[in-house]
């Protein structure tokens, strides 16, 4: 067990290091921010001068080693656009994304899991069909389309909810729904499958034979057992939500790290992008390691050799 954990953690570190390197190389291949920083009437010499001052005229491997050296001292570098430490910028935006992801997760779990339970326990009924259709619909609407629809209906036409920004709690409702829709489908499917698996097991049949009602069985035993795979899904969904936030945050002008990522890529603010990608991949890797460990703890038969 300890061996396995150590092995997984080493793999995780390798993955994060790889992410760092790949993103660094791709970003530098895309050019540097100097042209975007200078005023439009700058001369070629001035541009070259500023590029030199900012250090972008050095060979890429020198910049890379310089960056890694900074990282070893926990220095994530300065944003060339804002002249503020990149870490501070990301840290100031992170709470908004966490807030949004939490809202989306609430929507996804709050609707997804009950739907999954109903679909699993009422198989063949009309309700199951309707719910199944809703689940597939949630999975098929592009996030930006649902975002536009929500803004148009509840923001512009009915004026019930603010159309953008993060100035009040109500502003969270629409982006959370738009972002949560996709995950909602995942949760509904996964909990349905998990519960159906459990329902097929001997102890359920035995329970039913002893005269327990289906509802009692489900609530006393099945849900607890079925929750384990669902929890691991929840962990993995957090990574997906962070990624989905990129478009949703742009449409709703939600000031989280997704919007920041797009802006920073477009303004070639390398070090800010690095911090964001590092953060997201860290969360992703961490949650998948945890998910694996949960599996192993719960079901010792699983021995992952990857």
């Amino acid at each position: 067990m300890l061996n396995y954990t150590v092995q997984r953690l080493i793999q995780a570190l390798v993955a994060i290091f790889g992410v760092l390197t790949i993103v660094f190389v791709i970003m530098h291949l895309s050019g540097d921010p100097t042209l975007l920083l200078v005023p439009q009437d700058a001369s070629a010499e001035m541009i070259a001068e500023l590029r030199h001052q900012l250090g972008f005229d050095r060979p890429i491997w020198v910049q890379y080693i310089d960056y890694l050296h900074g990282l070893t001292q926990l220095d994530f570098g300065m944003s060339v656009v804002q002249r503020v430490p990149a870490l501070d910028i990301v840290a100031s935006r992170l709470p908004y994304t966490i807030q949004l992801a939490a809202g989306a997760l609430m929507v996804a779990i709050g609707i997804g899991i009950p739907s999954g339970i109903i679909m699993a326990t009422m198989r063949g009924s009309a309700i199951e069909r309707i719910l199944a259709a809703i689940v597939v619909t949630g999975q098929s609407v592009p996030t930006f389309l649902s975002a536009i629809l929500l803004i148009f209906i509840f923001g512009v036409t009915l004026r019930w909810l603010p159309t953008s920004g993060a100035s009040e709690l109500r502003a969270m409702i629409m982006p959370s729904i738009a972002l949560g829709a996709l995950s909602m489908s995942t949760f509904a499917r996964m909990s349905r499958i998990a519960i159906i698996d459990e329902l097929g097991k001997d102890y359920v049949r035995a329970g039913l034979a002893r005269g327990l009602s289906l509802g009692q069985t489900v609530f006393r035993h099945v849900l607890r057992n079925a929750s384990i795979p669902v929890i691991t899904i929840a962990a993995l969904e957090i990574g997906n939500l962070l990624a989905g936030a990129v478009i949703i945050e742009t449409v709703f002008a939600w000031p989280g790290i997704g919007q920041l990522a797009i802006q920073s890529i477009q303004s070639r603010d390398f070090l800010v992008v690095q911090v964001i990608v590092l953060l997201i991949s860290f969360v992703y890797v961490l949650t998948s390691v945890l998910a694996d460990l949960v599996y192993v703890v719960v079901d010792p038969r699983i021995r992952l050799v990857r």
Partner: peptide, 18 residues
Amino acid sequence: FRAVPDVSTRIADLKTGK
């Protein structure tokens, strides 16, 4: 001064008095 990247959202903000 608020940052609102999307034009339609800026217009909606104006109309809703935000």
